[in-house]
Design a protein around this nucleic acid. Structure first.
Lengths: 204, 204
DNA sequence: CCTACCGATCGGTAGG
DNA sequence: CCTACCGATCGGTAGG
């Protein structure tokens, strides 16, 4: 791994754990094993480094989401999407923490990112939901865009704060309840029945 | 309002907006209209001020929750609780941001707070849910503690990041979807029917 | 509640 | 990629 990637890696960890102001260039450089001045050769400023870290999180989505949407067959699309989101953030919880911190630290910048980069994909998936509602598989009173936001919110927030909430080893219970809430609040009884039969096959 | 309360007020605002490291004692003092050294007369250190701010958030719950639980009649208890949580955080979104930041910045301290101060109340309310499940009003597959955590999570996180998510004036949609998801994921059809008839009366 | 001040740390630059 | 250094800002203290 070249130095630039090592810097991005350490910066991701420290920005996620301590926030923009709490993470100093000196400590990031220490973790990589270089001097602060050398770090500023690769990234012109702390702000530029921070933006590069956030771009890394966003870049994955622009690659992964189209792939999942195209690959997953129509009926299994929701499971595939759910697992992609869960997998993406559990694989690297710092991604979730970075997103949450950005929402708190710079709400205006986050709003623009959501509108420009995330909203289009939300719209696409919301379209699938609307078709499911027309077929009677999904609850007609569900608000597709709002439902999606809340589920993503539960996953991202849950992963980001897992260390805080994980008392008594209840992370599994929390994760299972998210999945139950997501399904029961979106699928009709008819849709759930079809989903369950598919789930039993998948569990084997 | 005396100086001490003014300091706590300004500190709440700045800690919520910029985090512990991002909020300086100098700026907090500026907003109050005193010198930094004067601020350190009322609170011996930045850390002590921060803890006092968090205690203020917690103190409300130890007063409000027992009150709501006792006052609300059995059948309307869930609506009363939901509105208390929503009202508490929407009235002062900084409370929600502080809680979220604490979970990110000091997960260990947050975990202890949750175990000691919040878990007992969760247990009480979870008991109500279990009784509702035995009566057939609430879904038997719902995990009472986990469901409560997720609903509180949705409300706290939603309020804290409302500025980021509020594009196209969709905060109302997001709030309505939380309420719909909460109800449909907890109540059975029978329970929902009873709830709806009560809701219609309340809406008049 | 103030002025004056301290040591430490910060992001960033000069120059090689 | 380094050493050496800068001005600014930080939390906190002395003394009144």
């Amino acid at each position: 791994m070249d130095v630039r990637a090592q810097i991005l890696d350490a910066a991701t960890r420290l920005f996620a754990a301590r926030g923009y102001d709490g993470a100093s260039l000196g400590r990031i450089a220490d973790e990589v094993g270089v001097r602060k001045a050398s770090l500023l050769y690769h990234f012109p400023s702390k702000d530029a480094l921070h933006r590069a870290v956030l771009d890394g999180v966003l870049a994955h989505w622009n690659e992964a989401l189209p792939r999942v949407l195209e690959a997953a067959a129509g009926e299994d699309r929701f499971d595939a999407l759910l697992h992609e989101v869960v997998g993406f953030f559990t694989a690297e919880p710092n991604r979730a923490r970075l997103v949450l911190r950005e929402a708190l630290d710079r709400p205006e910048a986050m709003r623009e990112q959501l509108e420009g980069q995330v909203a289009p994909w939300i719209a696409v998936i919301a379209g699938y939901i609307r078709r499911g509602q027309e077929r009677g598989e999904l609850r007609p009173d569900a608000d597709p865009e709002a439902w999606l936001f809340q589920i993503i919110h539960l996953i991202v927030g849950g992963v980001a704060t897992a260390d805080s909430l994980a008392f008594g080893g209840n992370t599994d219970r929390l994760a299972r309840e998210i999945e139950r809430m997501a399904k029961v609040s979106l699928f009709t009884d008819e849709g759930l029945a079809r989903n369950a039969s598919r789930g039993e096959r998948a569990a084997e």
